Simulated scan of single mutants.
Amino acid sequence: MASADLVRESQDPSTTPARLAELAQIDRSLWPAIAVHPAAYPSLLDWLGQQGDPTVNAVLALRSGSSAAAPTPPAAPPAPPVGQTEPTVAAQAAPAAVGTTGDANSKNLWVVGGMVAVVLLLIGGVAFGATKVFDGDDDKDEATSALTVDAPSWTTRPP
């Protein structure tokens, strides 16, 4: 297993081609990093390709632009039996589209319903708070005559 310093060095763009060759001899787990390194020279890449490592060969194929290591496309679906017609592309996509839009519409309906409920609760809370703060009839006097006591007069003597 390569040490972290060797891995860093094999991935460092400033590593020289000669050092890349040394790293390739030191540890084979560094080969994929060396194969993608921009300073790797052609004969080093050829040597890496001759070693038979499938990961390195895939990297080299991608690097050279060949499709040798590219994944193969999926096989075509089998032809329908004689007498049956093949469904159109729209007919094949219709069930998936209906299922996904139904789920999306259902989810959107819940989101909108939740938002409406929150807005109504906020409006109700503000209205309730406003009635508590501003409750009362402004036309009434704060002090009624039944609650007030006449102040003593200094001009009259007590009996």
Rank of each mutant, 00 (worst) to 15 (best):
D141A: 13
D5N: 10
P13G: 01
G102L: 14
E9M: 14
A21L: 03
A68Y: 01
V118I: 14
R19Q: 02
S10Q: 01
I34T: 04
A61H: 04
A76K: 04
R63S: 04
P77T: 02
Q84P: 02
D150E: 02
A40Q: 08
R19E: 04
V89A: 15
L45S: 10
D12L: 08
A96C: 04
D46T: 12
V126A: 15
G136Q: 05
A61W: 02
A4Q: 11
R19P: 03
V149A: 07
A146S: 04
D12V: 08
A75T: 11
T148L: 14
D5P: 01
T16Y: 01
G83S: 11
Q11L: 15
I26T: 10
A96G: 14
A90I: 14
A127Y: 08
V112E: 08
A61F: 03
L147P: 00
A75K: 05
A127W: 11
P71I: 04
A2Y: 03
A18E: 13
V82Q: 13
A69Q: 05
V118P: 00
V59M: 09
Q84T: 13
S145A: 11
L48H: 07
L120M: 14
A68G: 03
D46F: 09
K140I: 03
T156W: 02
Y41H: 10
V118T: 07
N108V: 10
A90D: 13
T156Y: 01
P95I: 06
E142D: 12
D138G: 06
P152F: 09
L48Q: 11
T100E: 14
D103W: 05
G124P: 01
A104S: 12
V36T: 13
P42F: 04
P42H: 05
Q84I: 14
S67D: 08
D139T: 12
R28L: 05
W31M: 06
P42Q: 08
T101N: 14
T144M: 00
A39D: 10
T16G: 08
S29T: 12
L30S: 03
Q51N: 13
S106Q: 13
P158D: 07
D53G: 05
G136A: 05
S145G: 05
P32F: 03
S145Q: 04
G129A: 15
G52E: 11
V82D: 13
N105W: 06
R63T: 05
A94Y: 10
N57A: 15
G83V: 12
P78S: 11
P38T: 10
A40P: 09
Q92E: 15
G136T: 04
D141N: 09
P17T: 03
A79I: 10
E86A: 15
P81F: 10
A68Q: 05
Q51F: 06
A76T: 10
T101G: 10
S66I: 05
P78L: 13
D27Q: 09
G99L: 15
G129M: 13
L45P: 08
A2K: 03
A18G: 06
Q92V: 15
D139V: 06
L121K: 00
T155R: 09
G65R: 01
V89H: 08
